[in-house]
Amino acid sequence: MSAPTADRAPSWYEASARARLAALLDRASFTEFLGPAARETSPHLPLFDLPRAFDDGIVVGRGTLDDRPVLAAAQEGRFMGGAFGEVHAAKLTGLLRAAAELRPAAVLILFDTGGVRLQEANAGETAISEIMRAIVEVRRAGVPVVGLVGGRAGAYGGGGLIAGTCARLVVSEQGRIAVSGPEVIETNHGVEEFDSKDRALVWRTMGGKHRALTGGADAYAADTAEAFRAAALRLIDRAPAFDLETMRAEQARLEARLERHGTAGDAPDIWSALGVPESGRVSALGDDAFAELLASSGDSHDAR
């Protein structure tokens, strides 16, 4: 029994987790597991006088994508920053364990997270590892795990590591993927190291265009459900196996990146080295122009 959704916002970034799933998957195909009526809320947030959400900030279930069966999870970045608490994370772990057994055509993870929920930090941290291990098991079972990053909270902290474990990643310009967030870097090493209020710096260091150009993501999507859907469909059939060959190729890919760009001071230096003409203008390019640019330049995205 899935709860119906309202407000189908055209913007992926603005949409709720439920609205994203409804618009991404085939019409009315989604069935939620352990939905809000089950009231599986966090037992820990009340200790901190914090309100709970009926779904603990994540929606998991099954649906179809172009008539192919998929399992899907969507995080709600507006609740506790989409952070991984014990219940939240366990819903994703369960979905992945089910996928290893049931072998759907794909697992889709719609990221929208600041990382581990610090009120439940030990449970969340452990769960990040459980999720990564479960993703590996799903991939070994031959099922592609595709991550979609374009939400308000991005994919930070443990969410960034989980994203790096997926077989394929789609990112929009607004989607940010990183481990340490801007504020964390600034807090630890000062504003000279990273000015977290400099939005342009955040986007070009962690944002979707940079990740797509450098191989941190495999596909770039405009900020709409249609674009994410089309990209996910393209990627499902091109997901790499999880084996020694893939991992060695990733090792080589990441070594090459360090060798080529390890001394780069800023993102445009890297883009120039990748052969992007007028790299200073990348941030200003519209989605179509950027997609064209990406098709003609950028790093290899094969091994992940």
């Binding site: 590892s129 960034g160 790096g164 993927i177 990183a178 481990v179 870097i185 990146r257 360090l258 890297i270």
Partner: peptide, 17 residues
């Protein structure tokens, strides 16, 4: 900043994988 510019999430995930 350098680590994030270069995609630290991929490097850490790669080690775990």
């Amino acid at each position: 900043r350098r680590d994030e510019l270069l995609g630290l999430n991929e490097y850490l995930a790669h080690l775990a994988k």
